[in-house]
Design a protein around this nucleic acid. Structure first.
Length: 202
DNA sequence: GAGTAGATCCTCT
DNA sequence: GAGGATCTACTCA
């Protein structure tokens, strides 16, 4: 298993990166507790030209400042006061592209994830949906800006990848307010995987 | 099984 | 002061 290099994140095509992230492994390691999962669902946010993005129209605030940094760091923020959403910042400085990690297939540290989420046994809701992903992995807003090549949090590949016909593109979720951009097929997921979020899972 | 409403708090205007 | 890159439970058919 090898960490993805900075060159993976700093490519200009956020759509391609979102697709390439499917099948990769997201790992967190705090206080000696390792938990990891294979990424099976992502969404691309294409910076200033994307109405659904926090950086739409070149908006720049304290919260989304991280999106303008060089690719290869985490952007974490709280939504609806409840859910922590974990994003991967891509592209280079001043280009606020990001990929939202929406769902994982649990691999290591499942017991730790169950403990964090207050569940007793493994079920499909453990890492289904962006709010649950960060909860299961123990990711909070204070981790925003962390390097994805660091010791505590990183993304790695183990040689596994999905073939093109296993990957489905669809409109994003929860962005109806973004007008026509809400219909862009910027969400990518693995066909038939029970951990894919949203309903229905076609 | 499908659709809808409520929770809940940080961030920006 | 208002709204949001969501989730869950509850209702109704």
């Amino acid at each position: 298993m090898k960490k993805l290099p900075l060159s993976f994140y700093q490519r200009p095509d956020v759509i391609q990166i979102a697709k390439d992230l499917l099948g990769k492994i997201l790992v967190t390691k705090w206080k000696g507790q390792i938990s990891s999962g294979r990424i099976i669902e992502t969404e691309a946010y294409a910076g200033a030209t994307d109405n659904a993005s926090h950086a739409s129209g070149g908006r720049r605030t304290q919260r989304n400042e991280i999106m303008y940094a060089d690719g290869g760091v985490a952007y974490v923020y709280l939504c609806y006061g409840i859910h922590h959403l974990f994003n991967v910042v891509t592209n280079i400085k001043e280009n606020p592209h990001a990929v939202l990690i929406r769902a994982l297939e649990p691999m290591k540290g499942i017991e730790t994830m169950l403990e964090r989420t207050g569940k007793e046994k493994l079920d499909f809701t453990l890492t289904k949906g962006p709010g649950n992903v960060s909860k299961a992995l123990g990711i909070f807003t204070k981790h925003s800006g962390s390097s994805l090549l660091g010791k505590e949090i990183f993304i790695a590949g183990d040689g596994f990848s999905y073939s093109a016909n296993e990957i489905i593109a669809s409109p994003r979720i929860g962005v109806e307010y973004a007008g026509k951009d809400a219909k862009l097929p910027f969400r990518f997921y693995v066909k038939g995987n029970p951990f894919v979020s949203g309903r229905p899972n076609k």
